[in-house]
Design a protein around this nucleic acid. Structure first.
Length: 493
RNA sequence: GCCGCUGUAGCUCAGCUGGUUAGAGCGCCUGAUUGUGGAUCAGGAGGUCCUUGGUUCGAAUCCAAGCAGUGGUACCA
């Protein structure tokens, strides 16, 4: 019979691309957001929360059709047959919210939002179908100051995590500038929307496939390592070299970028206005001493469609990479999206925003092995030695907690050895022992597990651990809290 | 979505061209040490060999499909 019942057991499993998050990553997330959010608030951003799903039509132009009802988004039908979708970013719900409450909102509206988003795409390492984003957006202003502010905000956010110029950079470009270059190209040939996207995608891939690869994608096409062939934009030679000239400005000092871009853009109006914006932003950044951390970079493209002006990306870079190229990748990005709210309203509303991929940022910071985020210390464990005096253990725990020190009493009556193992696994720094021996003397024994671990490699016999009075010592019962808080303070430094 | 690779103990993996009771390291449990975690020593538990079907006297091994992970590519509002 036991065999039969095991057959009927449900297999415990999570769907593809989803995962559970354990306490150590949750601690890290808490740690990171508790540093970035105050930065947002210091700039005057207010928090907003919106539901996890909405009408599909409100989220974007992707209405599920019968062939592919879930392409990219998770969708389902309500009982009135209307399509609903889980949000795939925090920007579209914001656009809906602003449009719906337009007259109540004080503009420019500065909002931040922390929340999960869902994407129905192929998952990969560090790419999940559910992940946490932290967004800051400013709605209702066309001023370049908005973009400058968001760039500074993103730089300040990275700094708040203890990262410096060598660990991160913000790379800035302009969609308008890209369009100006394309406009110059289209003087000699027809650039329709399909071709435009092909060109933008090609530029976006510079990091991965290099300038040769981009060139191939701008001309006939490119065969990749897997044998797949991607059809190119089939541009004329002169057009290709114009675009390649722009790309090869590359990532560099903001002044250098501007002076080179001016030459390429010439008299083009769109280009002139793009340069004017970048110049104004540069001015502010200069005056406020944002130097090495913010660069202008002609290969930044960011997603597609939706952006209309300044665009930027935050990257963490590896220390041993002197070229300052991002080897680890983008942890956030943003830009101006002036047309998004016009889906809901006739008039155009200026908007610009910045989004941090929190889960991504966590993994990347862990990969970089930055000793910026302090490790979480476990609770102090009070051993459960004597049932008759259990209350005394709870008293000690209460005293410690009142001092803001994490403490727990061992639950149950396992042997001392098992209790010590429990303390070890929970990451307890200290253990408090109050058995009959101690109680009769009015003392407790404190064992320092952290110290013990340090010297464990060099110590042979068991007796010498216990006799080492740095590892284990006695304290008068009434001095426990004072003593422990001192040890914790000392161990921290 | 397309192409490739991988899937064996809790973890990392070994298992030659099909052939007896499927192995190692780490971890886990027990004891040496009934009031002491981490070192050392001795012992022990633990496996639908991803799933389903096929080929075969015989499959962890070969074949097919599915699932999951991974690399590349496409897409990413």
């Amino acid at each position: 019979m036991t065999n039969d019942s095991s057959k009927n057991t449900l297999k415990a499993a999570l769907p593809r691309g989803l995962r559970d998050t354990g306490h150590s990553e949750l601690d890290l997330i808490k740690n990171i957001t508790s540093k970035i959010i105050p930065v947002y608030e210091s700039y005057g951003f207010e928090e907003l929360s919106t539901p996890s799903f909405e009408y599909t039509s409100a989220l974007g132009k992707f209405l599920p059709d019968s062939d592919r009802p879930n392409a990219g988004v998770f969708s389902f039908q309500d009982d009135d047959e209307k399509w609903l979708s889980l949000r795939y970013d925090l920007t579209s719900p914001l656009a809906r919210y602003v449009a719906e409450n337009f007259d109540k909102i004080t503009k420019p509206y500065k909002r931040y939002q922390l929340g999960n988003v869902w994407r129905n795409e192929k998952p990969g390492p560090g790419r999940y179908r559910e992940f946490l984003q932290l967004d800051a957006d400013i709605i209702g202003s066309n001023s370049y100051g908005v973009d400058a502010e968001l760039i500074m905000l993103s730089a300040d956010s990275m700094s708040s995590l203890g990262l410096n110029d060598e660990n991160y950079n913000i790379r800035v470009s302009s969609r308008k500038l890209l369009d100006a270059i394309l406009a110059l190209v289209s003087d000699s040939e027809d650039i329709d929307e399909v071709r435009r996207l092909t060109i933008l995608r090609a530029i976006d891939k510079l990091d991965r496939i290099g300038i040769d690869g981009v060139q191939k994608l701008l001309s006939e096409g490119r065969k990749d390592e897997s044998g797949d062939y991607t059809i190119g934009a089939k541009l004329q030679k002169a057009s290709i070299s114009k675009i390649l000239d722009f790309i090869s400005i590359g990532s560099q000092s903001r002044d250098g970028f501007i002076s080179q871009a001016i030459e390429l853009v010439g008299e083009n109006d769109l280009g002139q206005s793009a340069i004017e914006e970048l110049r104004s932003i540069n001015n502010i950044l200069d005056k406020l001493s944002y130097n090495k951390s913010v660069v202008f970079d002609s290969s930044i493209v960011r997603g597609l469609e939706y952006y209309t002006g300044v665009i930027f990306e935050a990257n963490l870079v590896s220390k041993d990479n002197d070229k300052n190229l991002p080897v680890i990748g983008s942890v956030g990005g943003g830009g101006r999206y002036d047309k998004l709210i016009s889906r809901f309203r006739k008039d155009q509303v200026g908007a610009s925003g910045f989004s941090i991929g929190v889960s991504r940022l966590c993994t990347v910071m862990q990969m970089m092995d930055l000793e910026i985020l302090e490790e979480n210390i476990g609770p102090i464990l009070i051993l459960n030695m004597d049932k008759d005096y259990e209350y005394s253990y709870y008293q000690m725990a209460q005293e410690l907690r009142a001092y803001g020190i994490k403490a727990e009493v061992y639950l149950g009556s396992a042997g001392m050895k098992a209790q010590m193992k429990y303390a070890d696994k929970k990451g307890s720094p200290l253990v408090i022992i109050e058995g009959t021996v101690e109680r009769e003397k009015g003392i407790v024994t404190i064992k320092n597990l952290t110290k013990g671990k340090e010297v464990s490699a060099t110590i042979g016999s068991r007796d010498s651990w216990i006799k080492n009075d740095e590892i284990q010592f006695e304290v008068i019962r009434s001095e426990v809290v004072k003593e422990i808080s001192q040890i914790l303070k000392k161990d921290k430094t």
